[in-house]
Simulated assay, not measured.
Amino acid sequence: MKPIGLIFNPFADINKKQTAAKLRSIKKILGEHGLVQITNNTDDIPIALKQFYKEGIKILGISGGDGTIDHVLSSYINLFGSEKLPVIVPLKGGTMNMLAADVGLRGDQITSCYKLINSLNHHSTLPTIERGLIKVVDKRFNHPNYTFTWLDGLLYKFIKWYYKEGAGVRVALKLILQSGIKSLTNINHDLFKEVVSKVYIDDKKLPFESHLLIAISTVKRLVFGFRVFAEEAAAGEGFSILYLRFPFFRKALYQLPRVLYSGLKSDASGNFLNSSGRVVRIEGNRGYVLDGEVYESQEPIDITLEIGPKLKIFSPKGEKY
Results as ranks from 00 to 15, higher is better:
229 F>E: 07
176 I>W: 03
228 V>K: 11
250 R>V: 14
182 K>Q: 04
314 F>P: 01
125 T>Y: 15
15 N>W: 02
296 E>K: 13
258 R>A: 09
190 D>Y: 13
266 S>L: 13
214 I>S: 03
274 N>D: 12
106 R>W: 10
77 I>V: 12
199 V>S: 09
299 E>T: 13
200 Y>N: 07
161 W>R: 00
165 E>L: 03
9 N>L: 11
132 G>Q: 14
238 G>N: 02
296 E>M: 07
292 G>L: 09
171 V>K: 02
307 I>W: 08
98 M>D: 04
21 A>L: 03
88 I>S: 02
43 D>K: 09
259 V>C: 14
212 L>S: 08
251 K>R: 15
120 L>E: 11
231 E>C: 03
292 G>S: 14
284 G>L: 05
9 N>F: 09
67 G>V: 00
317 K>M: 15
250 R>Q: 14
171 V>D: 01
212 L>K: 08
86 P>F: 07
317 K>N: 11
91 L>E: 06
243 Y>M: 02
230 A>H: 12
168 G>C: 06
201 I>H: 06
150 W>T: 12
6 L>H: 12
181 I>D: 08
266 S>T: 15
90 P>L: 05
260 L>Y: 14
228 V>P: 13
321 Y>G: 01
164 K>R: 13
60 L>N: 06
32 E>V: 14
34 G>H: 08
20 A>D: 07
45 I>G: 04
58 K>T: 03
243 Y>W: 12
147 T>W: 01
277 G>S: 10
112 S>F: 11
248 F>A: 12
